[in-house]
Design a protein around this nucleic acid. Sequence first.
RNA 1: GCGCUUGUAGCUCAAUUGGAUAGAGCAUUGGUCUACGGAACCAAAGGUUUGGGGUUCGAAUCCCUACAAGCGCGCCA
Length: 597
Amino acid sequence: MKSLTDILEHRISRAIEKVTGQPDCPALVGISKNSKFGDYQANGVMAAAKKLKTNPRQLAEKIIAQLELDDICEAPEIAGPGFINLRIKDSFLTEHLLEINADTHRLGIDKTDKPQTVVVDYSGPNIAKQMHVGHLRSTIIGDCICRMVEFQGHTVIRQNHIGDWGTQFGMLIAYLGEKFYAENPDGDLQSDLEKLKAFPIQNLEQFYQEAKARFDESEDFADKAREMVLRLHNQKTDTMAFWQHIVDESRSHYQPIYEQLTVTLTSEDERGESFYADKLADVVEVLKQKELAVKSEGAMCVFPEGFLNKEGDPLPFIIRKSDGAFLYATTDLAALRFRVNELKANKVIYVTDARQAQHFQMLFATAKLAGWTDDEIDLIHVTFGTMLGTDGKPFKTRTGGTVKLKDLLEEAIQRATAVVEEKNPDLSEDQKKDIAKAVGIGAVKYADYSNNRNSDYIFSFDKMLAMEGNTAPYMQYAYARIKSIERKAAGKDVDIASELAGITTLTFTDNAEKDLSKMLIRYDQAIAIAAAECRPNYLTAYLYDLAQSFSRFYNACTVLKANADQRPVRLLLCDLTARTIKHGLTELLGIKVVEQM
RNA sequence: GCGCUUGUAGCUCAAUUGGAUAGAGCAUUGGUCUACGGAACCAAAGGUUUGGGGUUCGAAUCCCUACAAGCGCGCCA
């Protein structure tokens, strides 16, 4: 089914073109902020009038005369300097609702007719270090983008660009070797890989710090670590086995967090820095051949135009250090080539915090200079702000350390458990557990999603779990109430399935029904804008409006005790609201819903 | 010094990218409900959108300027 906004945009734009003879005068159809101006409004007439240097209201009159919208709207009205205000007819609304209702999977939303391949680079944890709160935003915002774009019908390729390569690995491998051989003094690694696989690293953070301490205190150890880096780069079998073990152990720490967050990343999506290790030399070589890379202060650099350093001199994009080692700019260039050439990306979306903005600008500029991308390929850096503590400073533990993501999520669940216990002590222990998980994790994710991603935001358990206002529990609650109605129906001799199946026409008897209906048909628009701008908060704002609209309806209209002629519409509205909320939360935001809470 | 981001109600945040009277939630005040879940609903009050200029039918949004905060600016990622 075509989106209503698209239909209106198309028809009104055509009418404008007919009257003005100008091809590029979009109707600019949007949802009216104030219902007294109608449901939708077209703002494009003023701009068109300006172009033609004519009176906008008179122009609007002429356009309206050409408009064919009888099947959708009441007679359009002109207001203010030249707005065209539209009010949706009940007949259109009810037909539209029935169509949406008939589509069990996609709620009447079409897939795109121009599918693209979109690569999304997000999460990117550092191996050998626990995920901390700084990883939360990239991980869940990226995931939401994937889910939305995929739902639109594009091919999404997730790329978890994990930090699994680099000099710190020499240190880690050397340390792991020390520990392993301490416990297996006669160990012969070649024949003893199984033993290594069973060798646990319980506390990654501690392991890393111990290795670092050894590195700093012992010259012998430091030499060993450097040797390991070399062996790693030369892919020596035993060293690779140790490296693999650290990577695997690390995965066993972050994969459960993905599952807890219902993030769609799997090990299939991992393509870490190590993957590009053998492609880096060529990156530098090609850039040298194209005379884009030059030596400066011993390092190999590209100087894309428009970037200056403190002294006002051109700023380098360093692709090889003076000691000959490659660095993240090199890896990112190799990754970009791979994504364009091998993955056939039409669009690459990077989800990292705003501090890296300049790096990505230079990356994109360099890739373009090299001819590795062109204007046909969209390169987008989706930035986001910092999570702050209630004091307005970067979010830390009381002692000033970084907050581990695992701890944060556990605390959220714990706090949610307390609330469930208070509100609904009679549920079974299993139910309470499930609800606490859904509510606690949902609250953390939703609080993040509902902010404009570019602004820093203050993280507060009390706010997000207050469960009032624009929060996950508010929507989960709306959903649970609908489910409760369904459960009660049987006891009141209402057969929902058969009543819904029999509906061929709908009649509204209450404004709350109509208002809710108008919200329901806007879902497609909310997804479209949220996906286009990579802004999950547009989606949460919609879902909140919808849940509010439902609460008003719920308050104003009885469902099960309604008259036989009113009940089918209301049952349908309940069902459709539940399906929309569920779809938005679970499919697009990755937040669980519960039948009871 | 240059650049990026930000500055909106007492607090936490929106504002579909230039649209009409800047919206929510919390907190405050008052109200609704013997219905299907009160984690609800309705209403009041709260604003010179940091200050000052400008652009135009129209500005929180664009331009200039001052102020304030955060971040980035050669071999970490």
